[in-house]
Write a protein that binds this DNA or RNA. Structure first.
Length: 427
RNA sequence: GUGGGUGUAGCUCAGCUGGCCAGAGCAUCAGGUUGUGGCCCUGAGGGUCGUGGGUUCGAGUCCCAUCACCCACCCCA
């Protein structure tokens, strides 16, 4: 018996419909916001991620699905979407198109993590990337999209956390000050933070160990040390959000690991999910395109985790299953002429489907009784019964499964009658 | 990668301190007379008790290992 690989799962009927619904809304909103879909490969040269995401991050250091292909190339299953989009933007010279270029993607991502609630090795994201504009309005648009999307789905109790992590001018200045601040207390920090202090000092402020928190209380605050330009950008983004009436809270400890990330950082948190509370994250990355060897193109983006969103929606009591298409079941009565009736049934199915109805019949050679039973089980709205006698008289029985009554109509009027009943029902 | 919990039919679970206990409900399929559903009744199929070792006369039931899932840490979607 072979099972799915660890950290992956099958999506069965009953569940996929929810995914389809989420995806449809993504596509619909992207149309409204002017984002066009881009499909990139799910694997790339390892170097793309190593350079773009950062050699020092956990993703690159221990979470990548990397392998050598038969040609000896190092290949990695994408752990996130931005790197590929930027690669494609450069590779196809999209910077020569009218700017900004607004793209969205949707699909599987892969990280070799230890699975737990809301965390899988193959998980799914959709994301937006807007390349080519510095305008804080774009930051606001991306956040607005995210908020709009969750709002339309009916998600409750989520929080948009916002921060600015500065730029290559002010952040290094700040991290240096931060290091200088903590260094005298190094021995009092937890072992993780001692490591963090070198790799990513901002994270020390986010540590949960009480002692580290205590020490961090008097540390310099990034938001108070932004350069003028960063401050302006940050306050502009906030102004836009206020005008749009999008609620947010400022979380000074919200951090992005790398130098390519600049200015805006935001996350959408659904606290009831526990340890994996973050259902979306995004921000600006004004230096990534250049880092990949392209022109200096500013950009901002967001990624939404579908599995986590689904969990959050469930906790919000959101019903995602769309109403089912009414089923018309064609049954045949037993008897010597059943083979012929079966052919008639197939023909009727086709007619119904051509007219836009969902139509089904039995394929297990069941008795009429059993056919009725299974029609009831799958929730058929009407059952058309092809009986020997009626057919001989040129008639078909239409049974209304909800009302529990039935009547005969001439064979040639079956479609017409069904359409009439449907129209009547829909008022 | 570290720590804790769990693992019995498709699903939810029972099986006390090791010995006819391999079970229930639901689901599936078939019947309840001759051409009709939803309720009810009857019956059937389906399990190497996660896997592999070990202890024992004998192991779902004890021990070890392994795998998977869940939860937490790390990190993130």
């Amino acid at each position: 018996m072979i099972n799915v690989p660890r950290g992956t799962k099958d999506l069965l009927p009953g569940e996929v419909e929810k995914w389809q619904h989420l995806e449809e809304l993504v596509r619909h909103l992207c149309k409204l916001y002017g984002y066009q879909e881009i499909r990139t490969p799910i694997f790339e040269h390892t170097e793309l991620f190593a350079r773009g995401i950062g050699e020092t991050t956990d993703i690159v250091q221990k979470e990548m699905y990397t392998f050598e292909d038969r040609g000896g190339r190092s290949i990695t299953l994408r752990p996130e979407g931005t790197a590929s989009v930027v690669r494609a933007y450069l590779e196809h010279h999209l910077y020569n198109q009218p700017q900004p270029v607004k793209l969205y993607y949707i699909g599987p991502m892969f990280r070799y993590d230890r699975p737990q609630a809301g965390r899988y090795r193959q998980f799914h994201q959709f994301g937006l990337e807007c390349l080519g504009s510095h305008d804080p309005a774009v930051d606001a648009e991306v956040i607005c999209f995210t908020w709009d999307y969750f709002q339309r789905l009916g998600l409750k109790k989520f929080t948009i956390e916002l921060n600015s992590i500065g730029c290559p001018i002010c952040r290094p200045r700040y991290t240096k000050a931060l290091k200088a601040f903590f260094e005298p207390y190094q021995d009092s920090l937890c072992s993780f933070c001692r490591e963090r202090l070198h790799r990513n000092p901002l994270r020390v402020l986010d540590c949960k160990v009480p002692q580290c928190q205590e020490l961090g209380k008097n540390a310099p605050v990034l938001l108070e040390n932004l350069c003028e330009e960063c401050q302006k950008h940050f306050s502009d983004v906030q102004s836009y959000l206020r005008v749009l009436k999008i609620p947010f809270v400022i979380n000074p400890r919200l951090v992005r690991g790398l130098d390519y990330y600049t200015h805006t950082a935001f996350e959408v948190v659904f606290s009831e999910l526990g340890a994996q509370a973050s259902i979306a994250g995004g921000g600006r990355y004004n230096n990534l395109v250049e880092a990949y060897g392209g022109p200096p193109v500013p950009a901002v983006g967001v990624a939404v985790g579908i599995e986590r969103l689904l969990l959050a929606l469930e906790k919000s009591g959101v019903q995602l299953l769309p109403p089912k298409e009414p089923i018309i079941f064609v049954a045949t009565a037993a008897g010597d002429s059943r083979p012929w009736l079966e052919q008639e049934a197939m023909l009727l199915l086709m007619e119904l489907r051509n007219a836009g109805f969902r139509a089904e019949k039995d394929y297990l050679g069941r008795s009429l009784k059993a056919q009725m039973k299974s029609a009831g089980k799958i929730g058929a709205r009407y059952v058309l019964i092809l009986g020997e006698e009626e057919m001989a008289a040129g008639e078909v029985v239409i049974r209304d499964m909800r009302a529990g009554n039935q009547f005969s109509v001439p064979r040639e009027n079956v479609l017409k009658t069904i359409v009439e009943m449907k129209d009547k029902e829909e008022g």
